[in-house]
Design a binder for these strands. Structure first.
Lengths: 221, 221, 221, 221
DNA sequence: AATGAATGAGCCTTCATTCAT
DNA sequence: GATGAATGAAGGCTCATTCAT
């Protein structure tokens, strides 16, 4: 039993280490040799367990993604029957947590969604991110009212979501340069308050604009 | 002179092509051979003109940056004596323009600020980006009032700036996948309206919160 | 017993598949992994049952050889007391059959006798082919008459045998390219007729030349 | 000038060595490292000059082919206005010469036309062999008379050509095993006599059969 | 008897860089 | 000033083989 676990552990270990390196250094910069060295595994083990560096990459990403989502529930532990504003706050909290504490994950997705748009992760990202986006959009649609178009929703989504990625980047850079972090974990609650209030104000204003302009249109027509 | 011009042209050509490829494919993915092939230059020319790939990289980045700033004035052509809200609008417009039309630039910076945080571009980015950030922060500070702390300003800055990068990423991905763009150039004005209104609402709300909480604090103390 | 049978079946299966792949792709091009995958056997089974790839190779060859000889009797089902011309015809028929229908065998021998002259199969080929050659040569010697030297016999043997290998090659190439076969199975009888008549004419002519030249020599001496 | 020649010599040297090794050991068994070691070239030179091992392979083959054809004119130095029988004799002589003296060539083609029908050389072989085949077939058609079909011609071609390949194989094997050659170069003239006489007799007999059977058909119809 | 895991040697290829001209 | 040739280091991958179970 112990042995069984141990044998499976090589695979697990490699996956963990890979996950870490891919996040820190990106796909190209991370060599199989480095991973295996750190994981104390044979260099051929990667090919045995995962087939290709690419496959390992994709799996590592999924691995990290699942771990992260497990740590921070994407709804921020806000029940789905609570008012939309609170649910949005939950999403924002979860997003910030992922951005600020997820060493391996949101990082990797960033780098690879942008730095390597060759589409290595395209599909796997779509599969994992889409549900999250849909949920956020549903909340926004509710807050924006029935007259909001898809583009309206999407523009607001950008405003809500973009800061997470931005902060991820911030963290990455700081870590790499050895700088003191500007946005520290202790600030999380204050940041959630700020981003939520900011977003809700922006959304309310957007709703007003939508309804006003549609009102005009109606009068005109 | 003729020769000088011609040789200089080779240099220019290489720089242009490098710029393009570095943006599209990143540092690692772009090979000197590819650049030289496309620029119809000898493969040794790069090392001759620029010394190393790294140097070429940095120069290419500066090149792109300057080109882009020249095309889209970072203040959005809003005079510095106009009200802060309008100046913010100018910044937002310029940011969106860079995000949506800058094929080579904002792109490269993204990738390399995050995907290659080895710091190859750290310095050069600091030199070029810092002034832009300072200017934006000054506007935000004005809008947020005298009680706003540096963190307050920075949190708002994130909300204003992050969407640009987000949209850049969007464009990159769409281009690479051959998808129809969600945010098209014709939408620019509408988008500027939206982001500006959204941001101003968020900022006003933030100011209210700052002043309220500081009022409480005052009463308490 | 059951286990024994089952295990033996695995062995058999591997041998069959190996035989097929070795014939189709040659020794180097055929990987143990491929064989085991196709035979639904564990990758370690080969080394368990056969020791090394080389051993498997040799065994596979013998296997194929025996199967083929069993299918097409090398004398073409012509009794040894029939006239030499008819026995030759039998040999030619059997040779053509092996060439045209032997998917796995004559093929493998070709490739390995020539493409892999490292001598992996040298011995095993000698053991299996020599008897066939001897038999053919005996017939030829009979047809060529008592004055024929060993070289005379061997030269004629080449003319008789070479076309078989040639046609094997033909088939292989056609199969691989997906071309329609030039020499089809329905043509077998016509081909046997042709090759036999051609060979007998050639042999008769050769005999005439041998005897004429030996006549001259006699006159001279 | 001398230097120019020298620089080009590396390429030439590699090509020569490659040619030799590919012939002796085949494609798979020949490693780039081995070639470069023997040619005293850097291991990356192959990729610089030829791109791929595959490309080198194809070029090596062409190289050998041309060299060989240059050494032994495929028509055996028999003028095209001589009688068909003599032209056939010329072809047979050239074929035997290639088979018996061509160390690097006919060898390689054998191995690769059969052992590696993956088609690496398919095209290049077609281009080089086809003209030779066409010429031989034209002669045979002339000898077989107007009633001969394509299949008739091809069957005779097999009988004429196959021995060459057979003898090539013979030589290869002997060389590899260190055996004394059965067919020695001194025997060339005698062998040409034998094969020519044998072939002409076979062809005449074939013509007789063709015309006889067509005669019967005519009477029948 | 049979297997899943693991290994080490080796191969082809890429690429930034250098050098002689 | 500019280039074609050449290089060395490194990377990803394949594959036959072994070992513990």
């Amino acid at each position: 039993m112990d042995l069984n676990t141990q044998s499976s552990d090589t695979r697990e270990k490699v996956l963990d280490v890979a996950c870490q390196f891919f996040s820190e250094k990106g796909y190209r910069e991370t060599t199989i040799a480095l991973i295996c060295q750190e994981a104390q595994a044979n260099i051929a083990a990667v090919n045995y367990h995962f087939g290709t560096k690419e496959k390992l990459y994709q799996l590592a990403w999924q691995h990290a993604h699942q771990q992260l989502l497990a740590r921070f529930s994407p709804d921020g532990d806000v029940a789905p029957d609570r008012p939309a504003a609170q649910r949005l706050r939950g999403r924002i909290r979860a997003g910030l947590q992922r951005a600020m504490m997820g060493d391996a994950f949101e990082f990797g997705i960033m780098r690879n969604e942008m730095a390597n748009p060759t589409g290595l992760l395209r599909q796997v990202i779509d599969d994992t991110i889409s549900p999250l986006r849909k949920a956020t959009q549903a909340i926004l649609r509710e807050l924006l009212g029935p007259q909001a178009t898809d583009v309206d929703v999407e523009l607001c989504e950008v405003c809500v979501v973009a800061p997470w990625l931005h902060i991820t980047r911030h963290h990455l850079a700081e870590e790499h340069e050895g700088l003191a972090p500007v946005f520290r974990e202790e600030m999380l609650d204050a940041m959630v308050d700020h981003f939520t209030a900011y977003a809700l104000a922006g959304i309310r204003e957007t709703r007003r604009r939508i309804e006003r302009s549609s009102g005009k249109s109606r009068k005109r027509s």
